[in-house]
């Protein structure tokens, strides 16, 4: 938490959200915490970008949502991947690998 958070590249947030939900359903704060944990605190997702992204992904048909009780029996909205979301995650992972490889190569070149 002490690190200064890196700005998210455009499109990266979607990929991270999909990844975070790949392991199971989460509510908004849960998604945020899971991303923090997955990236070892590099990325802090504020609600101002989290919720628009969640709604966008849901409208795209990649996520579904439902209200349910939280760990402490509070009401929270839980998100989960749909089948289409799972496919989207796979294709975005493939694409990310290509891009990051290309950029790494470019940066290593003299």
């Amino acid at each position: 938490m002490g690190q200064s958070p890196t700005n998210l590249l455009q499109g990266t947030l979607d990929l991270l959200i999909l990844k975070a939900l790949a392991l199971g359903e989460l509510h908004g704060l849960g998604v945020s915490r899971r991303i923090e944990q997955l990236t070892r605190g590099t990325f802090l997702v504020k609600p101002g970008s989290l919720f628009p992204a969640l709604h966008r992904l849901q409208d795209a048909g990649w996520l579904s949502s439902a209200w349910g009780p939280s760990e402490n029996n509070r009401k929270a909205k839980y998100y989960r991947l749909t089948a289409a979301g799972r496919r989207q995650l796979e294709s975005e992972i493939g694409q990310w690998k290509r891009v990051s490889l290309a950029i790494t190569l470019a940066l290593q070149a003299n």
């Binding site: 908004g28 609600p47 919720f51 709604h55 509070r74 909205k77």
Partner: peptide
């Protein structure tokens, strides 16, 4: 309304944390 509740729930969860 749904969105409103969702954002409020988020703040509640964060407070609890």
């Amino acid at each position: 309304r749904d969105l409103d509740q969702e954002v409020r729930a988020y703040v509640d969860l964060l407070t609890e944390e």
